[in-house]
């Protein structure tokens, strides 16, 4: 009895082949697939039809909260909780609140980025089957991979393997789940 299968992993020698392979696989009707590359490739986003990340919206809201929180804090301290006369300035000296407001905006936006990125990426994740592919460590060096997952309704061991081999991969390997 063979072990359960995660998918088929094709290896490519450059990013153009990878982008082309992703486009072709999408045209063939494959949807459950992912590409792995040692460098960011702008076109991959379009080739795989990955929806836009909600991250910017989270960061914007996070920054907004930091901004209002920082300004609110200063207003509360200087006007309500502990009003202090500094050289006869008005209590509500808003220009002097701006630098701190800026800092809290950046701090909150930065922390929101870090936390939402970790969560959106599905971390922490101690196990992922793609690392079972024999040459996958090359994905952080100089090789480009496309993995079509067995869960895809169009997936068929024979046909998918044949399709991948038409894309001139350097290698096609089975990936155990």
């Amino acid at each position: 009895m063979s072990k359960p299968l995660y998918g088929l992993m094709a290896e490519f020698e450059n990013e153009h082949q990878l982008v082309h392979a992703c486009e072709r696989a999408y045209e063939e009707g494959y949807r459950k697939m992912d590409a792995y590359s040692p460098l960011p490739i702008e076109e991959l986003h379009h080739a795989l039809h990955i929806p836009d990340s909600p991250l910017p919206k989270f960061v914007f809201v996070g920054g907004l909260c930091g901004m209002m929180g920082g300004f609110g804090l200063l207003y509360w301290i200087a006007n309500i909780e502990y009003p202090m006369n500094v050289g006869g300035r008005p209590w509500y000296s808003w220009p002097q609140f701006i630098p701190i407001t800026f800092e809290t905006t950046v701090l909150a936006a930065g922390l929101t980025t870090l936390i939402s990125l970790v969560l959106l990426c599905g971390f922490p994740q101690p196990y992922h089957p793609v690392f079972n592919a024999p040459r996958f460590s090359q994905a952080t060096r100089d090789r480009f991979f496309l993995c079509i997952e067995a869960e895809d309704p169009n997936f068929d061991m024979q046909r998918t393997r044949q399709f991948l081999s038409t894309l001139h991969p350097a290698d096609v390997a089975e990936v155990e789940a």
Binding site: R89, S93, P95, Q96, I98
Partner: peptide, 12 residues
């Protein structure tokens, strides 16, 4: 522009 404003505003 804000740096100039803040410094001059604060010193008054």
């Amino acid at each position: 522009a804000f740096s100039q404003f803040l410094i001059i505003y604060s010193a008054n």
